[in-house]
């Protein structure tokens, strides 16, 4: 990599030689000068975000060349996307899985354990029965919600534990486990959404 402006070798965010802003690094952790990690210090991330927001604000580049102006716009866009993704533990975990080639969206059905599917299927059946039923059945919906929210809280705990484990070991198994927990969490979140009492005419 060389500076787009002066050709100096290995420019940082700003070229060490001519100080011109470089095109942003697209990878979110690298953008914040962090190593990929699951259990990151969110306070520290916020500090980095504020610091970079001040340095990269497009207004600061309005009198520079159009190319540098463009880089400021791109950098601000990456900054906002990166912060939004990395500050949330679940979005961050999904992002790390993608980086590590275990994208949740590209799983085959064989990656989803049958026990999880059985469990989700049974919960859906019970929930559907309550939703389609009379007033007594509908009255069970808030109870379902409480139960599902407790399940989600358990899953969040499991995500936090396996996150710490992966940061320490970078073991592939930890990521596979993480994906399993996130799959379950997504299913539970879906179930929670269905616990609202349906509108009936």
């Amino acid at each position: 990599m060389t500076c787009w402006n002066c050709g100096a070798a290995e420019p940082a965010r700003f070229c060490v030689s001519c100080k011109a802003l470089q095109p942003p690094v697209p990878e979110y952790f690298a953008f914040f000068e962090l190593a990929p990690q699951l259990a990151l210090d969110e306070k520290d991330l916020q500090q980095r975000f504020y610091g970079l927001s001040r340095k990269l604000h497009p207004d600061l580049f309005s009198r520079k060349s159009p190319a540098e102006n463009e880089h400021a716009l791109e950098a601000t866009a990456v900054l906002n996307d990166a912060y939004r993704t990395l500050r949330d533990p679940i979005a961050r975990a999904l992002y790390v899985l993608k980086l590590e080639g275990l994208d949740v969206g590209e799983q085959s059905t064989k990656d989803v354990p049958p026990e999880l599917l059985e469990e989700v299927f049974e919960l859906n059946m019970a929930l559907e029965e309550a939703r389609m039923g009379d007033a007594d059945a509908l009255a069970q919906l808030p109870g379902f919600r409480v139960r599902f929210e407790a399940m989600r809280a358990e899953t969040d705990l499991a995500v936090a534990q396996v996150s710490t484990a992966w940061d320490a070991t970078h073991a592939k198994q930890a990521l596979t486990d993480l994906r399993g927990h996130l799959n379950r969490r997504k299913y539970i979140t879906n179930l929670i959404d269905k616990t609202n009492v349906p509108d009936r005419v």
Partner: peptide, 13 residues
Amino acid sequence: GMVGAPECGDVMK
């Protein structure tokens, strides 16, 4: 056959 797509929350028997 029981299959599912967690990303969409789908489960199919």
